[in-house]
């Protein structure tokens, strides 16, 4: 790596230029994070100031891992993230392969496939809420026709499918663009050589294309897990609100519910700290592997 070095004549200028970014980071990231860290080791006082907050060490964390609701939320998050990631990446790869094979209208299809990315998560949630609505939605109506009684308000699995579909849908655009760029960077001659080497279309995909996409795939894997775990609040909030009976209450949503609805700040803070830890780990993995340029 080359480093760029410039020199400023005024000693304070570089700091002044950095200040806005630093201030924003301090106010919106560092301060709340430190608050959460603080609160996670305190037991909350009461609203009238009669009982002051008390230091409880790691009790909030210990309680979490004894709490079957929290463990359930972990499990739900796992299903949800894996489901969302696999669905959105799988479909995106399929679309990218198909568009990459096209000769005309390539750009038109690309544009259409990218549009969903411009839609806010909450709006996407509402969209899916309408489509899946057991009373007025088109999908339950169609499913009813083939004998399936859709109701995500009572069925846990229906609810999970709904949030996965709604969350994955939006991410397909992003994944699609990366996969398409990845596919386009594979030299045509490699596939021609493989064709001469007697590999069928399928075989070429799995033995040449897919391995060569692995850096892209890995990058997207991390991005998608992070998205599913932390960026899907709007989707959940607009569709199932975590229900029915906690079936779609993923970790981020639970933080919000416990903190702002149930007003259990200590537990909520401890949960945020755990989430923070997960983000940090994912980010570290991401950077480690991007530097190493996976696989070949």
């Amino acid at each position: 790596m080359q480093t760029k070095r410039s020199t400023f004549r005024n000693g304070w200028l570089p700091y002044a230029l950095l200040a806005p970014q630093i201030i924003i980071t301090l106010i919106f990231f560092v301060w709340p994070a430190s608050q959460a860290l603080m609160q996670s080791v305190y037991r909350q006082g009461d609203a009238f100031g009669v009982r002051p907050p008390t230091f409880v060490g790691l009790r909030n964390f210990a309680m979490l891992f004894d709490d079957s609701l929290y463990l359930n939320s972990l499990k739900v998050t796992l299903y949800f993230s894996v489901g969302t990631t696999v669905l959105s990446m799988g479909l995106a790869l399929l679309f990218a392969v198909m568009v990459n094979r096209m000769i005309r209208s390539k750009d038109t299809y690309t544009t259409f496939l990218v549009w969903p990315y411009a839609i806010a998560p909450a709006i996407a949630g509402v969209l899916w809420w309408f489509i899946f609505n057991p009373n007025i939605g088109i999908l339950p109506y169609v499913l009813n026709g083939i004998g399936y009684d859709w109701n995500h308000r009572s069925s846990s699995s229906d609810a999970m499918i709904l949030v996965i579909v709604a969350a994955a849908w939006k991410q397909i655009s992003y994944n699609f663009l990366f996969f398409l760029a990845g596919l386009q960077s594979i030299p045509q001659s490699l596939l021609e050589a493989a064709a001469i080497d007697g590999a069928s279309r399928m075989k070429r995909f799995w033995t040449i294309v897919f391995p060569l996409l692995s850096p892209v795939t890995f990058f997207l894997l991390v991005v998608n897990i992070v998205y599913a775990m932390f960026d899907t609040f709007g989707v959940i909030h607009a569709t199932t609100e975590g229900g029915p009976s906690q079936a779609t209450n993923i970790l981020v949503y639970k933080v919000f519910r416990d903190g702002f609805v149930n007003l259990n700040m200590g537990s909520s803070a401890a949960q945020s700290v755990i989430l923070m830890g997960i983000v940090i780990i994912l980010t570290v993995i991401q950077f480690r592997y991007i530097e190493r340029r996976v696989n070949y």
């Binding site: 050589a193 064709a195 007697g198 060569l212």
Partner: peptide, 30 residues
Amino acid sequence: LEPAERDIAMVFQNYALYPHMTVFNNLAYG
């Protein structure tokens, strides 16, 4: 006939070696 059925082998200008395979596997692939 498909390229694979013509019983020919081709050497490309840019070599078109499979970058993720060892030399052995490059040779063995066909």
